[in-house]
Structures are given as structure tokens and as C-alpha cells.
Design a protein around this nucleic acid. Structure first.
Lengths: 156, 156
DNA sequence: TTAATCTTGACAAAGTTAGTAAGGATTGCG
DNA sequence: CGCAATCCTTACTAACTTTGTCAAGATTAA
């Protein structure tokens, strides 16, 4: 149970990009130096981000990348999805993967558990944007519980 | 991001065991037939469960396994912990793993994000017991939000 | 034209997963 | 006792995933 380095590096780089790209496109060399990541790996990562419509590229000298939309419209969920694929706790209900799919009933209780956990995580990651991360202001209030007044800020 | 088959098989087998073991010890052959899992794999799994103190073994003919404590004292979190190790979204803050640990500050915002997500998942899985699963009654209300009256039952 | 960038695809070392296999130890029962 | 049922332990391996590296190309600003 892990979000891969690809997803995590990508997210960190995007937060950095989000802070820098008001001044114009940011090139990968700068990003790689700021974030201590290899340029080659970042290229792979940004290629995926571009195909997912999260960033735009500007080719040629003085080129680089910018966010394709507002920083408060890009969620952690979108980023992880683009880089690592959909979050999946268990594949037992996903028939087109090599793994034997569970032979039990469709309402198998552990299946329901994993699916529910998945939905909750997805929900949490959908509620946090690049802007929230850049400003270091985010919480884990789930979207489904709307009546909860107090924000439960995470600071440690 | 995945809970391994080891963890998932183990959990399913334990729910079955929870239902059957009132009558006395249950042997792995029976469990493996009911749940369509290989005996060899189950042996590996139950070995870990035993070392974690979740089940007790009775050796010899007519032996088998029983839960070591009440079914409502064994949480999903404990089971997954025993079989897959602690849930970890990101190792960037864990210094004794091979992966380069993040060079940023300890309060690195993505680090805080992953750690918070981890805590939330842990919290959810700690709130669900084998009994809940056997009875197919559980929800994802987090422990930390106590004022929430309505239960949000997961049934699909 | 040239240097700075992005673009694309191939490749590989290391690690993880999902089991399989084999032999041993313990104990109930006839 | 002796044997069958059962747990116990360790070793092994094929397939897959992760984490990058590398190289050659395309595009564009200056």
C-alpha cells in the first residue's frame, strides 16, 4: 500500500510549478534542481501530466511547463490518477486484471470494505488542490459530511 | 496502492473462522476449501496471524485454529498489520528504508499530506472488527468525529 | 544556426508479490 | 504403539512492478 515515487515526485514538482509559473513557463532543469530529482525522470512524469491535461508544454528555447488550469482546480486525486493510475485497494472486483477475481458473491463483505475504503480515499484526495498544498492549508474533512463545522487542520 | 492478496485472503479466512470456531478449532483444509485458497498459502498466512497473537493454534489430529480473543476485539487494522505490515502511503519520512528520504524540511507539505492520509486510513480500519464484517454491519465514520449522529452504512 | 527545451521509446537493475514445495514436529485415536 | 491428521518452518521461483537511466529526435527563441 503505497503511492509510488512517480506520483509523489510529480505532486511535489507540481506544487513547486504552481508557485513559480506565474512568471512564465518553468523548465524541467530548474524544477529538477529545486526538488533534487533527475531530469530524465521528471520528463517521464511531465509527459504523463501533459497527456492528462494537467500541464501545458511550451517547446523550444525559453520553453517549459505551466499549469493547464488554475491551481485551485487541480486536485491531488487527478495528479495521482494521471501518474499512478486509479487508486485501487483490491483488484478482487476488477475482472480484467490477471489476478483471480474473487469467486464469492458480488456483495462479498470484504469487497464492500475495500471498495468503501477506496471511495473514501478518493474523496479525500479530491478535496485537496495544488493551491491548498502550496498554501499549506488543507484538512481531511470528507465531502460527504457537510455539517461538520470545525476544520481539523493538519499541521504536524 | 494495494492491499496484498495475503492481507485480503487472511481477512476473509478470519471472517470465516470467526463464524465457525465456536464449535471448536477449524483446520486449514476446511478453510481452504470454503474460501478456495491454497492450503500452502493459508499456512503461511496463519503462521503470521499466530505470531501476531490474532489466532491460537491447536496442533495434532483434530487440531486447527481458533481466534485468540473475541471477534469484536480483532480489527481489520490488526489483521492487515500482521500480514502486510504497517500501512504506508509514502516512505519519504521513514529513514531506515532504502528509498531516498525526502531532503525537504520535516514539515514538507506533501509529507504531511501522506502522513495524514495514512492516519485516516488507519483510523478507519481500526474501527471495524471481525464481528462487524461477519455481521456485514460497518460504516466508515471516523473515530475522531464523534458528534456525527447518522450512521452512513455501506451496503453497495 | 545554435542552444535550450520538450518528446518518445527502449532498456535494465532491484525489489515485491503470489504463491509452490518439501520436510519436520506434535498429538489424538484406535 | 503407530499412524494419520494437523500445524510449523524455511526455501525457492516465476512474474510483475518500480525506479529510474539513456539516447536520439523535434521544435523554437535568439
Amino acid at each position: 500500500m503505497n503511492i509510488s515515487t512517480r506520483g509523489r515526485y510529480g505532486l511535489r514538482a507540481l506544487v513547486e510549478l504552481s508557485a513559480l509559473s506565474r512568471e512564465g513557463p518553468v523548465n524541467l532543469r530548474d524544477l529538477s534542481e529545486k526538488q533534487k530529482m533527475s531530469i530524465d525522470y521528471l520528463e517521464q512524469i511531465f509527459n504523463k501530466l501533459k497527456r492528462a491535461g494537467i500541464v501545458q508544454s511550451i517547446r523550444g528555447a525559453k520553453g517549459g511547463y505551466v499549469l493547464a488550469t488554475n491551481e485551485d482546480e487541480i486536485t491531488v486525486s487527478q495528479v495521482i490518477n494521471a501518474l499512478d493510475g486509479p487508486i485501487s485497494i483490491s483488484n478482487c472486483y476488477n475482472p480484467n486484471l490477471r489476478e483471480k477475481s474473487c469467486t464469492g458473491p458480488a456483495t462479498c463483505v470484504t469487497r464492500v470494505l475495500w471498495k468503501g475504503l477506496e471511495n473514501t480515499i478518493e474523496s479525500m484526495l479530491s478535496s485537496i488542490t495544488l493551491k491548498d498544498l502550496r498554501q499549506e492549508k488543507f484538512d481531511f474533512k470528507l465531502k460527504r459530511s457537510r455539517k461538520n463545522g470545525k476544520k481539523n487542520l493538519l499541521r504536524s
